[in-house]
Simulated scan of single mutants.
Amino acid sequence: MDIAGALASAAAALNIVKQLNDVDRSLGEGELRAKIASLYVNLAEVKMALADAQQEIHEKDREIAELKKRTALAKPMIEVHGFSYEAVEGKPTGGLPFCPNCLLEEVQIRPVKVLHAFQCPRCKSHFSRLQYMNAQPAP
């Protein structure tokens, strides 16, 4: 149940409380018990929905923290021949480019040399004809 469902259940519970407050004394004991039981059911739904919402909020907070961490650790990049390299003073450096597949998931990782090709250690993608790039020191 989402927050909107929790609000709907809370509104129903409040409506029942309002009806109980306006109850006519001639109302039968059975009807009174039925309304109280309905109130308990609605309040239980509200409690479950709010617990679900709290869990969802905690998950979003963890995701936000992870994204902030990634952003803080991300290196500036420059694109050369379709590959993204680490940029230092506007020039490509860092040796090999970042894995383009992992960059789609916002993970900066470089392929490693495996025999005659390059392979990403994370996603296992294979690359050929990668160029080592190093920035020239400023004069």
Score class of each variant (00 low, 15 high):
residue 33 R to I: 09
residue 40 Y to I: 11
residue 137 P to N: 05
residue 54 Q to N: 08
residue 2 D to G: 06
residue 23 V to W: 00
residue 85 Y to Q: 07
residue 30 G to L: 11
residue 101 N to C: 08
residue 17 V to Y: 04
residue 122 R to C: 04
residue 20 L to I: 07
residue 13 A to S: 11
residue 7 L to Q: 11
residue 136 Q to W: 00
residue 74 A to G: 04
residue 11 A to P: 04
residue 126 H to I: 15
residue 75 K to A: 12
residue 59 E to Q: 15
residue 96 L to I: 05
residue 97 P to I: 00
residue 107 V to R: 14
residue 83 F to P: 02
residue 79 E to S: 13
residue 108 Q to E: 01
residue 123 C to Q: 03
residue 15 N to Y: 11
residue 20 L to M: 12
residue 4 A to Y: 05
residue 74 A to S: 15
residue 71 T to R: 15
residue 99 C to P: 01
residue 25 R to W: 03
residue 107 V to A: 08
residue 88 V to I: 11
residue 63 E to Y: 06
residue 22 D to W: 00
residue 31 E to A: 12
residue 107 V to W: 05
residue 101 N to L: 10
residue 48 M to A: 15
residue 125 S to P: 01
residue 61 D to Y: 07
residue 68 K to G: 06
residue 6 A to Q: 02
residue 107 V to K: 13
residue 80 V to R: 09
residue 117 A to R: 10
residue 23 V to L: 14
residue 74 A to Q: 10
residue 26 S to C: 06
residue 53 A to P: 01
residue 63 E to V: 06
residue 116 H to P: 00
residue 83 F to S: 10
residue 48 M to C: 10
residue 92 P to Q: 07
residue 120 C to L: 02
residue 101 N to Y: 05
residue 126 H to S: 13
residue 79 E to V: 13
residue 110 R to M: 11
residue 50 L to P: 02
residue 47 K to P: 02
residue 107 V to M: 09
residue 117 A to P: 00
residue 1 M to L: 12
residue 57 I to S: 10
residue 10 A to G: 07
residue 52 D to Q: 13
residue 123 C to L: 05
residue 19 Q to C: 09
residue 13 A to Y: 02
residue 73 L to D: 15
residue 36 I to P: 00
residue 101 N to F: 02
residue 46 V to K: 01
residue 42 N to C: 11
residue 121 P to E: 04
residue 19 Q to T: 13
residue 117 A to V: 04
residue 135 A to M: 01
residue 29 E to A: 15
residue 41 V to R: 11
residue 95 G to E: 03
residue 49 A to K: 07
residue 30 G to V: 08
residue 60 K to L: 14
residue 91 K to C: 06
residue 18 K to V: 04
residue 19 Q to P: 00
residue 56 E to D: 14
residue 53 A to Q: 06
residue 88 V to W: 09
